[in-house]
Nucleic acid binder design. Structure first.
Length: 813
DNA sequence: GCAACGAGCGCC
DNA sequence: AAAGGGCGCTCGTTGC
């Protein structure tokens, strides 16, 4: 008997969607994609149609079928393939061929790797998804592949990509033609052709530039070739190996055309290292993409790939050119050409990159205007030159101090490690599972937390700190101490510096989902992230000779933004009154009203607890986690005070009781915005779409987004003001410069005699009024100055950071 | 021997 | 069951 076909839809459909094989529900109901996977597909089409302004009756346009029409044992498609192709699959594919020949849809959607393989002969859904491909099963038809909807259930991060792919499918289904972009590539052209092209390209409005490089053993980059494209249908590729070409490259880079890059900070730096200045850089498609899809922010992308520390993509949406090509253009996947031995193929690859970059710019401009984030893009572009400057300037490291710290910590580690090994009866590596053996087997202590991913017991500092409170044991403290000392050495004190002993961290405006800057090691592989340097080693960062460091931070910035977002009059009142908000809150949370609460709270460490409670509670942190972070702070700073669960709970309850608007307004409005549009807007015009699964984690991400983003943007806006040399009102004197961004703080240096003036300028630039719910918010700033970057201490760090007024007094005396 | 991955942890 | 968010880096383990 012929098996029943699990299919649905009309035989005059525009689109045929092809899955792998039916599941149990599909078999029972005789229809494909009836469960959760079907819902995902349905929803994506509805959204795509809405985005395209179409009202399309899905079921009249879409024919859905599978490669096979029986369920393989264990739902494992491999059953059909190994040890050899099974007849059930071959029958299914013949049926599919027949169906396609009869229906002749405008578009076939391959849902997953197997349909991709049998419809196009291509393999690797991650590479080929989104590409418009000729169908090899039935010639003359076209295929777009994307993830199988069921995979979205497992890897929800793919949801955003899936949605953009389905949108492409809805567009492609309008016409049957493959109609792929055609481009001409002029590879190392003869002088006449080259000169003609140079003339034309210099006169063009836009010119994209893309370099190919090889890393040298000394960390520098050798340029192989440079691609230029003035129109998306052509590109010129100039190998670096002739002096004529190098001159041509210099001419093109310095011409008046508006330049387009993909991750230009890299290209521009490398060109500069080779004596070539790029003028009129106006568009970076990585920045454009980030302003459209902030979810692409985060590491683990081509930036980190460049550094050789690539990790698996974690972001819902990637920002690399390969991905952008798949969503902004109709150019099929071609990145494998990069790894060819064939020189012409490689040069063509370079030219295609340039042409695609050129093409993407135009699409991005339209989309940025439609989406309403063109100002966000321009803001990030404005940051680029000053961030490059900061990276290239760097900060001086006192290497004597660096080595002294390392020696001190190594000595301590040696002693503690001896103590630990003797106590444990064997050697214990504190960064290995040895610790779990020691805690949970040898000492028989209880497991209190497990990894979400692997379900393995956790032995992190919170667990160990909690164990130490309940079952005190000297080895526990030793583990924590060794871990943190090893960390200081491995992650900071062993950092490779440049030959002039400067720390040159890079800054990346597309590095986060919020618009904060990300910081990491630079393109030559020296230095590291400068935004997580521990306080206890910051003293090795020093001002240049004759100069002094300043660190100016926004006071309680995120908490203020939350108060304004919540329209919480009482909290706004406390901020506006100029009182010490934490002492004030501590008094109220812990019932110290009417007493001399400031002294009491300060002495009791409750002020610190109040700070933690406010910050954590705003973003959905629970009491248990609150005390962990508060007590960790206390341990690190040597404070004897510990927060108990009871006190934390009471404090948190009081916080929400006193300021109910946090939940009633702020949280509620975030949830409503998410429910209605899955999009949040910030006071500075950022828009972030949330593609994640609808759960509390998504809510917590969303609560944190606007405050974090607003403060991050605020500090960057101030940096732009100070960089912009035309603006007389924030003009810094020669020798004064910004050195780093600490999210809510700016770090810089200036000549010692200019410190008052410089600080006044920077503070003025940082004083940026915002409107939140039509109410003005201006966040005050605190200033510290010193010769090194650690806090002042009369005995241990007399050259450290202190309040400006105190420093002036001290330096007069 | 290398690459991927998880755990852990520094900062705001 | 319990769960703040946002990052980047290093080590140790594991799997090929």
């Amino acid at each position: 008997m012929k098996p029943e076909l699990i299919q649905s839809g009309p035989r005059d459909a525009y689109i045929v969607a092809v899955g792998e094989s039916p599941g149990r529900n599909e078999i029972e109901q005789g229809k494909p994609f009836v469960g959760a996977a079907g819902e995902i597909l349905d929803r994506a089409f509805t959204q795509a149609n809405r985005a395209l302004g179409r009202t399309l009756l899905l079921h009249h346009e879409l024919f859905i079928t599978n490669l096979a029409h029986i369920q393989p044992p264990g739902n494992d498609f491999d059953y059909f393939l190994h040890p050899q192709l099974r007849p059930e699959l071959m029958l299914g594919i013949l049926q599919l061929k027949k169906d396609l020949e009869e229906i002749r849809p405008n578009l076939i959607i391959a849902l997953g790797n197997m349909p991709l393989r049998f419809l196009t002969g291509k393999e690797g859904i991650g590479k080929w998804r989104g590409s418009i491909l000729p169908c090899t099963l039935v010639s003359g038809l076209k295929v777009v592949a994307t993830f199988h909807p069921a995979s979205i259930l497992r890897v929800y991060d793919n949801n955003g990509v899936f949605q953009t792919d389905i949108r492409r499918c809805a567009e492609e289904s309008l016409t049957p033609e493959l109609n792929l972009p055609k481009r001409d590539f002029y590879i190392d052209p003869i002088a006449d052709v080259r000169n003609e092209l140079i003339l034309e390209m210099c006169r063009a409005e836009w010119l994209s530039i893309d370099i190919e490089t090889v890393k040298q053993t000394d960390g520098t980059w050798h340029i192989s070739c440079v691609g230029f494209s003035d129109y998306a249908d052509r590109a010129m590729i100039l190998p670096w190996n002739s002096s004529d070409n190098r001159l041509a490259i210099a001419v093109l880079c310095s011409c008046q055309a508006k330049k387009i890059f993909q991750n230009g900070m890299y290209d521009i730096s490398v060109l500069l290292d080779n004596g070539i200045k790029v003028k009129n850089v106006v568009w970076d498609i990585m920045y454009g993409h980030h302003a459209l899809y902030p979810e692409c922010g985060g590491s683990d992308d081509e930036v980190t790939e460049l550094l050789g520390t690539k990790r698996v993509a974690r972001s819902a949406l990637m920002k690399k050119l390969e991905f952008q090509t798949s969503i902004y253009t109709r150019e099929p996947f071609y990145k494998d050409d990069k790894y060819t031995d064939d020189l012409p193929t490689f040069y063509t690859y370079n030219g295609r990159d340039a042409a695609v970059t050129r093409e993407i710019r135009d699409v991005q401009e339209r989309e940025l205007r439609d989406f309403g984030t063109i100002e966000v893009f321009e803001h990030e572009m404005a940051l680029q030159p000053l961030l490059m400057h900061m990276t290239r300037a760097g900060i001086q490291i006192d290497t004597v101090e660096m080595n002294r710290l390392k020696a001190e910590y190594e000595e301590k580690i040696g002693r503690l490690q001896d103590f630990l090994d003797k106590g444990a009866g064997r050697s214990v590596n504190v960064k290995s599972p040895d610790v779990k053996w020691l805690l949970f087997e040898k000492l028989g202590l209880p497991v209190s937390k497990r990894s979400e991913k692997t379900d393995k017991p956790s032995a992190d500092k919170y667990v160990i700190e909690a164990l130490n409170t309940k079952h005190p044991h000297p080895l526990l403290g030793a583990i924590l101490e060794i871990r943190s000392l090893r960390d200081l050495i491995e992650r900071y004190l062993d950092t490779k510096l440049d030959a002039d002993n400067r720390w040159r961290a890079s800054f990346d405006p597309t590095g986060t989902r919020t618009g904060r800057l990300a910081s990491r090691s630079n393109i030559y592989g020296t230095s590291n992230n400068i935004q997580n340097i521990p306080e206890r080693i910051r003293r090795m960062f020093v001002a240049d000779p004759g100069k002094i460091l300043f660190s100016i931070d926004y006071s309680q910035a995120e908490a203020r933004v939350v108060a304004w977002l919540a329209r919480c009059e009482s909290l706004i009142g406390v901020f506006n009154s100029g009182q010490d908000i934490h002492s004030r809150n501590a008094a109220r949370f812990f019932n110290l009203e009417g007493t001399d609460y400031e002294i009491k709270t300060l002495q009791g460490g409750l002020r610190f607890a109040a700070k933690r409670i406010v910050h954590g509670s705003n973003y959905g942190m629970q009491a248990q986690r609150l005390i962990e972070s508060a007590n960790d702070d206390a341990r690190r700073t040597g404070s004897p005070h510990r927060l108990t669960l009871d006190i934390a709970r009471r404090g948190q309850e009081t916080y929400f009781l006193l300021y109910p608007e946090i939940k009633d307004n702020f949280w509620r409005e975030v949830r409503e915005a998410l429910r209605d549009t899955r999009t949040l807007n910030t006071p500075f015009g950022r828009k972030r779409q949330f593609f994640g699964r609808w759960d509390e984690k998504l809510m917590n991400e969303a609560y944190a987004f606007v405050p974090q983003s607003t403060v991050g943007d605020l500090a960057c806006k101030a940096m732009i003001r100070l960089w912009d040399n035309d603006k007389e009102q924030w003009k810094l004197r020669p020798g004064a410069e910004l050195l780093a961004n600490g999210h809510d703080s700016l770090i810089g240096q200036c000549k010692i005699e200019d410190i008052r003036w410089t600080v006044a300028m920077v503070r003025k630039a940082m004083d940026i009024p915002m409107l939140i719910h039509r109410r003005e918010l201006r966040i005050p700033t605190d200033v510290e100055v010193g010769h090194n970057w650690s806090d002042y201490n009369e005995q241990t760090n007399p050259d450290g950071l202190m309040e400006l007024s105190k420093w002036l007094q001290k330096s007069r005396g």
